[in-house]
Amino acid sequence: MKIGLFVPCHVNELAPEVAIATLELLEGYGLTVDYPLAQTCCGQPQFNNGDLKGADRAAGRFAEVFAGYDYIVSPGTSCVSHVGAHTPDALSKTRSRVYELVEFLQDVLKVERLPKPVYFPHKVSLHQSCHGLRLRAHATPSERMLPYQSRLERILALVDGVSVVYPQRRDECCGFGGSFCVDEPEVSVAMGEDRVDGHAATGAEFIVGAEPSCLMHMGGVIRAQDKAIRPLHIALLLTGRGGA
């Protein structure tokens, strides 16, 4: 099984530890993982700003760079959702091979335990990022009348000692929104503040999620306000890097 690691731009530059944890987690299951150095951007920013040609060019490049791999795995849910849903139909082979980390662990590897047991005796408040939630069915959105399920909850069941809670307004957006965070900075910050307050009000020590950009945005709000709660990407938790 040839696996190509796709590291979104913001993770590469701003949260390299998340990519390292993802890599080590996959290697922990005995897999060989390659990081193709020619990778750049998946094209989501272009797409979301209306530059469809630019987005298609980026998608075409993405498909070429990852052409030789059976699976493309990434710790970035939002970029994966873009590649999976918004790239040209001609790239359908790429679309169906791209997985967010937890999806890959659950749907392809069908893991029942972690490579190294993790004991994490802490309360964590789950952050269901919108694109994972509503574009990749990571959980049941609160708007829908459907049986409840949550991928993140299921994978956290493999961690010892952890207790999972949700904020009030279980799945409201944190306000990051890609370029929205600079186009509409005041609304973005107001949403981020409300979201952080919601997570903090549960008494949890960590906000755990699968989308690094939301966690980065909430982390910025937390630092500006000097709050105690900490954002934590699920890959870090699953590799025992909870930092607690």
Binding site: V7, V11, N12, E13, L14, A15, P16, E17, A19, I20, Y35, P185, E186, S188, V189, A190, G192, E193, M216, H217, G219, G220, V221, R223, A224, Q225
Partner: peptide, 14 residues
């Protein structure tokens, strides 16, 4: 913005 700080910049990229 008041209320949101820049991310910390790691020494090394992935």
């Amino acid at each position: 913005r008041p209320g949101r700080a820049l991310p910390e910049m790691p020494a090394q990229s992935f």
